[in-house]
Design a binder for these strands. Structure first.
Lengths: 120, 120
DNA sequence: TTACATACTTAAGAATCTTATGTATATTTA
DNA sequence: TAAATATACATAAGATTCTTAAGTATGTAA
């Protein structure tokens, strides 16, 4: 019998809703090809364990991005296990750019609401 | 027959998902009592029309915050129309503080992912 | 008098996530 | 060596949070 203690955070926040696609496109543009599990570990590392991407969100997202033409996939056997390496397409890079612009807009708007003193 | 042209933005982004509660609590703490319609106009003004809070999202959210004890409500007739003024409670202020902390964490984490050069 | 603005409500459906379950192999630990 | 954990992917069921849409009602401007 195991009891897990959640000391802090662990993406309890619903603010991450809608940001996964942006994160995936940006990571894949930054790091070249990556596979799903690798992405979860990279995000955990970058956020010091604060943001944990669940498989139930990750894999359907990757499939959708691929179906949209934003990613290509290539299966590869490593250590007798299958990895699916994803790579961003030119279309995906365009999408990434517009997603990042949306993120900037979102941040600016939140600042305007939360911190109206500094009129961004 | 009318055709509406959406020139730019209008919160097409799914990034706002999950941020409404934070926005409501912050605005009500900042401006004292406000009513629903007033909130939509205030947000539109602060974001220069970029973020439009829909009634279908706003009113259920206000009801939920009230049911949670974060807001109190008082109906008032003005110009022969009903307005429901909402006010933040001490509990609501606590919730606001923790929501803003979550927002800060979210922003920091997004920076770590999007802009890993600057290790925040 | 028709449209638009103000003001609130709520149901149906969509999008995006969590939880849970399943499959399979490799490695570490008790 | 058996059990637990880590690696690696998939997907269905349910939850949350939103959009769309329809409804009610009054006031004002075109």
């Amino acid at each position: 019998m195991y009891i897990y203690l959640r000391i802090l955070g662990m993406s309890t926040s619903s603010l991450y809703r809608g940001s996964l696609t942006t994160i995936l496109l940006k990571l894949l543009e930054e790091h070249g090809k990556m596979y799903g599990y690798e992405i979860t570990q990279k995000v955990k590392e970058l956020t010091q364990g604060d943001l944990v991407i669940k498989e139930g969100a990750l894999y359907p997202s990757l499939h959708k991005l691929e179906a949209s033409g934003f990613l290509t996939v290539r299966a590869q056997r490593v250590d007798n296990r299958i990895r699916k390496y994803y790579e961003i397409t030119p279309q995906g890079k365009e999408e990434k750019t517009s997603r990042l612009a949306e993120l900037d807009e979102f941040l600016a708007n939140m600042q305007r609401i939360i911190n109206p003193k500094l009129s961004y």
